[in-house]
Design a binder for these strands. Sequence first.
DNA 1: TTTAGCACTCATCGTATGAGAGTGCTACCG
DNA 2: CGGTAGCACTCTCATACGATGAGTGCTAAA
Lengths: 336, 336
Amino acid sequence: MELDRRKRQVLRAIVEDYVASAEPIGSRTLARTLGLGVSSATIRNEMADLEALGFLDKPHTSAGRVPSDRGYRLYVDELMEPRPMEAEAFRRMRLMYLRRVREMDYLVGQTLKLLSAAGDFLAVGLGPGVRTARLRRLDALEAGEGQVALVLVTDHFVQHRLVEMPDGMDTGGLQRALLVLSHELQGVGLERITRSMLESVAREIKGRMREELLSFLRDCLSDSEEQVRIVGTSRFLAQPEFREPGRIREAVQLIEQSDALQELLLEASGQGGVRVRIGEETSLPETRELSIVALGIERQGEVVARFGLVGPKRMDYAKALALAEEVLRGLEQAIS
Amino acid sequence: MELDRRKRQVLRAIVEDYVASAEPIGSRTLARTLGLGVSSATIRNEMADLEALGFLDKPHTSAGRVPSDRGYRLYVDELMEPRPMEAEAFRRMRLMYLRRVREMDYLVGQTLKLLSAAGDFLAVGLGPGVRTARLRRLDALEAGEGQVALVLVTDHFVQHRLVEMPDGMDTGGLQRALLVLSHELQGVGLERITRSMLESVAREIKGRMREELLSFLRDCLSDSEEQVRIVGTSRFLAQPEFREPGRIREAVQLIEQSDALQELLLEASGQGGVRVRIGEETSLPETRELSIVALGIERQGEVVARFGLVGPKRMDYAKALALAEEVLRGLEQAIS
DNA sequence: TTTAGCACTCATCGTATGAGAGTGCTACCG
DNA sequence: CGGTAGCACTCTCATACGATGAGTGCTAAA
């Protein structure tokens, strides 16, 4: 089962050629570019063997070879040469993670920008959401002209809503009620906060304001914010695999109704660290033709953020892995 | 130049047929569906006249007729029968605008959701950004464990950033400095606030914290937030006009690099009220084949939010107009 | 003013055809 | 026994061709 040296060379060359050109690789061109001093017929034999072993596929009888999922897998695990990040992007990333911002939403957004700028990937990211957040503070900031800003602060995000106070209502009562709630629930995981807890406090507030307050708190506690964020659509869609209208349509749909992407990201990023899922390994029918390099950021044993670099299976795994590892290192250090 | 009754009937029928079917309309079918008791030859003559007057186009010699930009224009201005919004969507919209939320970002987001759910449009929206915002409050909320939430409140949005305090620094100084700044600049338009104003205050704060504070304030004052928001891509792209790969590619590009869409929205929504731009009228080469129903929300003579419903020229103008007018009414009332 | 009739145009679709790229196999070589 | 040359075979893709059908424009007549 072990592949000999030359087979590995051939497979690696096919993967790298195909990644670069998006065209199936024929034996003639490969014999030439490989420079091994063997003829195309020899390469053909090697290719036939690799195909029999499941590392290559043929789109059709006379079209050259294309790596199979197993082929990509072997390439990623054993054949590929790791490649460090581009210097400029590396510098920017470092700089960002040295800052003192602790707001995950912000960090996720900035990281996504850097990731999608670095290649033709679709960069997806998922913040901590309510799952791992602990309440720190709940407040109502008077903002003049009868308006008040409701603010909820947790250990890694802030939510707010600007609301108009009903006539004749003073902010004092509201602030007091929130202060009580704030003290009571200090340090409690948002997930543990039930509606009845909120409602008992809100009872002291009357009328319209109660509804708005409850609506705000409910929105904060619901997972609605924990939605996957997606950057880099157009460079992703510009890839040659999406030239046909059918494919592009599929991809657009995948992006727009982001549930599938979210599931993909959750599954692939798992319990932290960097992982690669290739084609069928993604276990989602919609993403059978895509790959993802995913990572989960851990803090105190909890995964607080996840990122993924999604591309066609023919993506630049070395680049994506270098990016992913750097994000993992930088971000975990930043929030530790 | 005035069109007689029958010509108007014919034009209207062609527009409505074409909107429904996306196929060019022939004289035979039209003669049948119109039920005027005249033959296809008569209709052919009318069509030839309408084409000569510039209200119809021919994709090619033997393909039936299609409305021209002028044809759509006349339809929208004079021929179309206004149609009220669908009841359920109307109810939801009403309910939303009766709430007391004054945060434009939130309102824009919710409105876009409703708009894109109501039809096959691409719903675009633009919040007030810094242009029309007036500072209300600037604060630093202690959040425990050495973290502090910087909060900036204006009359229609809130910005925040969660930052880690450097060791040994107390929030007191920070809060005092912000309070001073807050009082000084109370009610001042964000656009008027210059960097030197900020820096003079920040001078009292030392080290890393100053950098983070300035970075936060700069981000608040820059237009970065005033980016057009886009919802409904996939339903928009599912329209038959985007069946060809070239067209769909164009459209995706238009959406992703949203500058053009933003410009379109700004131009079309103008100084408030509801307006329609059809095809060439959009004055952007990229959107020559699209139409937009746009509206600007005014408050005290300033446009604080803009929305657009973008579709192929063959869009359902009656529906889009009904939606637009309701948003205009509801939102202006809500924030007045 | 309307209509019937007819020649004409043009996109579309299916089929045929040839070129080109690439494979698999067989026979042969060192 | 691994490597190579040669050749038949397969399959896609581009092109051409003709048939089909929808629709028009025009003319002459009602």
